[in-house]
């Protein structure tokens, strides 16, 4: 069975027919071709698949595509303008918050969600907000620095 899915994906309205049993993660990666969002585990434990739905970080691997009808979905591809990295992307790049990079899109979207509701978070608030994301490479310290740097760039208005 299929349902009509009308959503705003990365700022653009879009309509698709999606099978009832399709995960949002598979819709994004396989139907739309946005492969920035990653699959890291068999369900709910790693955060690699994090996307924003109406600005709130959610796990696309446990969300049915048809259930986001009428909502606004943002993936990592929504960030940056004309080839210029966004503040959070620059933070992860310049502060070495990314090594193998597999967890990075999930961390970036969870961080963007945090900075949209709290533009100047403390270290504790950053740790708390990224608590659903697992990274096997960086040791997290650089990730926290990356988010602080992004908050600073946002405050200065020096990145899109």
């Amino acid at each position: 069975m299929a349902q009509l899915l009308e959503l705003t994906l990365n700022g653009r309205p879009r309509v698709d027919a999606v099978p009832d049993n399709m995960l949002l993660l598979d819709y994004l990666r396989e139907s739309v071709g946005l492969t920035g969002t990653k699959t890291g585990c068999d369900g709910g434990e790693c955060g690699a698949c994090t996307v924003l739905i109406d600005d709130v970080p959610l796990l696309s691997c446990l969300t049915l595509a048809a259930s986001v009808n009428g909502r606004r979905v943002d993936t990592v591809e929504s960030l940056g303008e004309n080839g210029e990295l966004s503040a959070v992307q620059r933070g992860f790049h310049e502060k070495l918050g990314s090594q193998c990079g597999y967890c990075t899109p999930g961390f970036i979207m969870a961080s963007v969600g945090l900075l949209r509701r709290n533009p100047a978070p403390s270290d504790d608030e950053i740790q708390e907000a990224l608590g659903s994301n697992i990274c096997r490479c960086t040791g997290y310290v650089k990730i926290i620095e990356a988010v602080k740097f992004a908050a600073q760039l946002n405050a200065e208005g020096t990145a899109p």
């Binding site: 709130v56 959610l58 446990l62 969870a110 608590g131 659903s132 994301n133």
Partner: peptide, 9 residues
């Protein structure tokens, strides 16, 4: 419970 993203859901 769980982590912040699971708690949003």
């Amino acid at each position: 419970i769980a982590g912040p993203t699971q708690r949003n859901m």
